[in-house]
Amino acid sequence: MDLITFIIVTWNNQQQIRQCLQTIMKYTLVPYRIIVVDNHSSDETVQIIQKEFSTVDLIISPDNVGFAKANNLALWQVNSEYVCFINPDIILTEDIINPSIHVLKEKQDVGLVSCKLRNLDSSLQPSCFHFADAYSLVAEILHIGKIFPQFLCKKYFMNFYNAKTDFYPQWVIGAEMVMRTQEAKDIGGFSTEYYMYTEDMDLCKKIDCILNKKIYYLANISLIHLGGASEVQNFNYNKQEKLIKNDLLFIKKFYGENEVHKVLRNMNRAYNFRLNLLNLFYYRNDKNLQIDKTKKVIDIIKEIRDGYCSR
């Protein structure tokens, strides 16, 4: 019987899916199953899987139902003890499953295990964060963690923390996550009110709130995450606006409406402060680009705030 099931959601990933599946098969040393849910790709993703990977269970969605719903479609078909949600733009370079399962067996207070993400050049890819709130978002906007030593980043600015030993972040990027299957089902899988982005933070929060368990980060087991392959294709998708709106949806869901207003107020102040810093002290070649991007985000926040105030 399979010990773990990999769930992969694809959307026009013909350039990545072959290497992802090949490296899963190469480095996974326990009995496994792979389920791919294709979100209505228009390229050769489905054909590659059907022709070259006959052992992969393929679910072809007639529509692009988003990341959360697609993962959940597969989750309800999983019978193995463990499940690994993994992106199609992942390249394994070692066995990630045995170390992850070992943690879940040894630490009953852990609900999810994730490994270190690296870029293609082997540099660190930030993947650990604090839950979005009125203070963590300001810290991210102003990149405050850059000026603090690592021991403070671990506690207050996790996205700037380069962990050398395993630790417990609040949430991790959803490019690769290992859970006990029953617990993934107990919390309802991914929350489907998010079409894209923030589903991973929400999942980790549900593990905290519903299961009363923690997230565990394996600092010395790593994999390559090419990153953003599906996002780049969606030219009509305003990523920044969607990220802000989804953060606010998360905050309202877990902290209430009053916290949303506080967050919007703090974010507006932080971006205006950032704009002043760029104007006064930033002298790199992309200064005008950074100023324009910051102004655009300020406009987005104003529009969102106006919408909340008019309710």
Rank of each mutant, 00 (worst) to 15 (best):
N238V: 02
K287I: 05
V65A: 11
L218H: 09
N119D: 12
D133P: 00
T28I: 04
I48G: 03
E241G: 03
L223G: 03
L211P: 00
D109P: 01
G66Y: 07
Y194W: 09
N276R: 09
S136W: 06
K154T: 07
K287E: 05
C20A: 15
Y27N: 13
K213D: 04
G227P: 00
Q47W: 13
R265D: 08
F254T: 04
Y32A: 05
I34C: 05
F167K: 00
L264K: 06
D121N: 14
L58R: 14
K105L: 05
A184K: 12
D109L: 03
N64A: 07
K262L: 09
C115S: 04
I147T: 06
N272S: 10
P149R: 14
Q22Y: 08
C204R: 01
S61Y: 12
A219H: 12
Q16P: 00
S122L: 14
T93G: 09
K155T: 06
I91Q: 15
L29W: 13
F131S: 02
I144Q: 02
S61A: 08
D247V: 01
E176K: 02
V46Y: 02
K146N: 14
I4N: 09
A175Q: 06
N98G: 02
I187A: 07
D95N: 10
N162R: 11
A229K: 11
W11R: 13
K245Y: 02
N12T: 07
K293W: 11
K205S: 06
F6D: 09
T28K: 13
K287V: 04
D38L: 13
T198S: 11
D89Q: 12
Y216P: 00
D95W: 06
L124N: 09
K302M: 07
F129N: 01
E257K: 13
L280R: 14
D186K: 15
